[in-house]
Design a protein around this nucleic acid. Structure first.
Lengths: 257, 257
DNA sequence: AAGTGGTCTAGACCACGGC
DNA sequence: CCGTGGTCTAGACCACTTT
């Protein structure tokens, strides 16, 4: 909860400050902030640097540091559906389609790293943006992690908040695959699009800091309402001429274009 | 060319070192590297921190800093097709379908920020991975930037290398949109997939450091051979309760799930 | 205890922008 | 010119891992 070191304290403090200001206004000079928070300039700069890298601030040498316009094509970071929609300027909504406890079975068990005979809570939700269907989300969580979850819990609260507050589970990392797909008849009906419409298929696995798999989520997003926008960086990798011994990691994974 | 400050020099030096080592071996202690390169520890650490953040190194307190396994699901960074394919363990290839100089027209002119009557070089290439079709790439470059480009130039060389070496153009940033789509009849034939197969549509705009638009690229990737894998970060945004005045930037753009 | 990375400081000097 | 951010230093002390 409480920031553990000065860096985190400063980072949070500056974030608070930033979020209390309008876009485009400058934050106080670094040296002032150092005084105010009682830290050295290096420490303060580390915090501000990170916030700038994350898109909250824009630095301009000689002029100052300014609150940045909310970057929409932000980093591919772990955001909830609700936050994602709000960033896109739409009002998030949700309709729970089903909530059941099922036996994992082989494929699901594998993805959640539990026994195929383990119990798994499966929640299916239709996700809305501005009242209209945006995505179908199917959530799988090992039942052992969330005893006593009820359908009502999923209506208002963010699932991540619920995990944190009620079960003390903090999601720390995740991996997500992105594929193009087309909607089947059921998805088409729910999403209100013609059959075989282009759509995104996201599959996400989330873990706690100790590596425990918390959830496996499969989401189908309408391709006509949802697009990804990515900022490409210079990629100064400077790949060497002779290329290193290439491993074969068994899986086909991926990166860019 | 030459690094301008110590940070860049150190960063490049350490990257060289890293790339000369096997995965998993430790790099020398920070204090040794400081001596070797003649910089203070803060400066060295900044370089190592960045390399760690970019996935080249892994730090472990009390143990050391180690060469990381090449992250395949690396940052969404600006890689060429060839490098991307090599990372995925496939051999890149290319077949030029057409190369012509055309008049931009309104939509293309808008994307390249040139007059609709400006001349634009359009190159269409079938991109291969392990000899099999992977993507169709349509490249548009203002003719003024690349006088005298011939079809042969595109066969072997990376287009970015060609830009850099022959025309002195360094691509510095870019923006890319990602959408799901389905193949039309022409694309299906070229990609050797059934009609209406799921596919990715990438649209990329690249700029030099001074903001000049270098290229607009439209690529269609086979959905059955290509997937994106993204590492999600903790997203410590700590979104506030009251949400800020939301702009409406006119476009729908995007970020995550 | 020794060695490693992690945090932090107080201050110096440089580069750029605006007055 | 002054105020801003950008770079860099030399050293202190802490936290963790290994021996």
């Amino acid at each position: 909860m409480a920031p553990r070191n000065k860096y985190e304290f400063i980072r949070d403090s500056v974030l608070d400050l930033v979020q209390s200001l309008e876009v485009g206004v400058p934050i106080p000079p670094e040296r002032d902030l150092c005084d105010r928070f009682g830290v050295s300039r290096m420490t303060l700069r580390r915090a501000v640097d990170d916030l700038a890298r994350e898109g909250f601030l824009e630095r301009h040498q000689g002029r100052g540091t300014f609150v940045a316009a909310p970057k929409l094509g932000q980093q591919l970071t772990m955001t909830s559906f609700s936050e994602d929609m709000r960033r896109r300027g739409m009002a998030p909504g949700s309709r729970t389609l089903s909530l059941a406890t099922v036996t994992a079975g082989a494929p699901l068990g594998w993805r959640l790293a539990v026994s195929p005979r383990a119990e798994v809570v499966r929640a299916r939700r239709l996700r809305l943006a501005d009242e209209r269907p945006m995505a179908i989300e199917t959530l799988h969580v090992p039942h052992a992690l969330i005893p006593g979850l009820s359908a009502g819990d999923l209506v208002d609260t963010s699932f991540y908040d619920l995990l944190a507050e009620r079960y003390g589970i903090e999601v720390a990392s995740g991996q997500q695959s992105i594929e193009p797909t087309v909607t089947n008849d059921e998805e088409s009906e729910l999403l209100e699009v013609p059959e075989f419409s282009p759509a995104f298929l996201f599959e996400r696995t989330s873990r706690t800091s100790d590596g425990t798999i918390v959830e496996f989520v499969r989401s189908v997003y309408r391709g006509d309402r949802y697009q990804l926008l990515v900022e490409l960086m210079p990629a100064r990798t400077r790949s060497r001429a002779g290329n290193p011994p290439q491993q074969d990691p068994g899986r086909p994974p991926a990166a860019t274009t």
